[in-house]
Nucleic acid binder design. Structure first.
Lengths: 121, 121
DNA sequence: ATAATATCTGAACAGTTATTCATGTGTCAA
DNA sequence: TTGACACATGAATAACTGTTCAGATATTAT
């Protein structure tokens, strides 16, 4: 149905229009770009990274996390919420405690890769 | 000199204080956490990712980038500025054009890793 | 029940960020 | 020189984000 939509010609300055159109095909589509951006953003906060650095060692409850990173329990809870929504952490409830842990080690590898990358420079 | 600073005892709820102190040693220090957060944040914007996805293919000037991603040249220039400050892209000037390219392929690998990670779920 | 503990939640506020707009700089062509 | 083009920059505005605060929920102990 909506194939061959006549879009405006791309007004380029150095490359031919045809090449520009081809590159537009390579272009990361907006929705995926948005999802990736949200993922990276979820790692784009120092306190969330600090929390993750602890959870990389062992599972911890909110109160202990808060005590160790020296943040309010509320602030930690809010941050865990966003980490949870990005599936970076999961949790189990035990009595009145909630223990959080890394959801998988993909994240840890990413974290380590960037840590090393920044040391290089 | 400033070793053995007597800090307040950590008031934990489930783990012993001693363990909490040990974990505090494992904790990502604030300055490094901040640098890592800035790095991840620089990837935390859909338009910047889209720009990077093009530069992953080939070097491009600002005007062509703007035309392909359909943003104003000013907006693209601002974004390139932050990518440049994070050493994600570099550039060369040629006449009145400025050609940007990925600074290294570390970034590309990171980008690809996350792209795949998000496809998994 | 009541109180204390552990966590979560929503509103509010401050700080940050991305875009637009107007303007400035540098390069090329006529 | 003049004008057009490519890009950069600063200010302003709107949207977003992280924290605090007050209060809600749920669990355990008394």
């Amino acid at each position: 149905m909506n194939q061959a939509v006549a879009t405006d010609p791309i007004s380029t300055c150095t490359i031919p229009t045809q090449q520009a159109e081809q590159l537009q095909g390579q272009l990361l589509d907006i929705q995926k770009a948005q999802r990736m951006a949200e993922f990276f953003s979820s790692l784009g906060d120092a306190n969330r990274l600090r929390i993750l650095s602890l959870l990389a060692e062992e599972e911890l409850c909110v109160g202990d996390l808060a005590a160790i990173v020296e943040m309010s329990e509320s602030a930690v809870s809010h941050q865990l919420r966003t980490l949870k929504s990005m599936r970076l952490v999961s949790y189990r409830k035990q009595g009145r405690h909630v223990f959080y842990r890394l959801q998988d080690h993909h994240v840890l590898h990413l974290y380590q890769a960037v840590a090393e990358h920044l040391d290089e420079v």
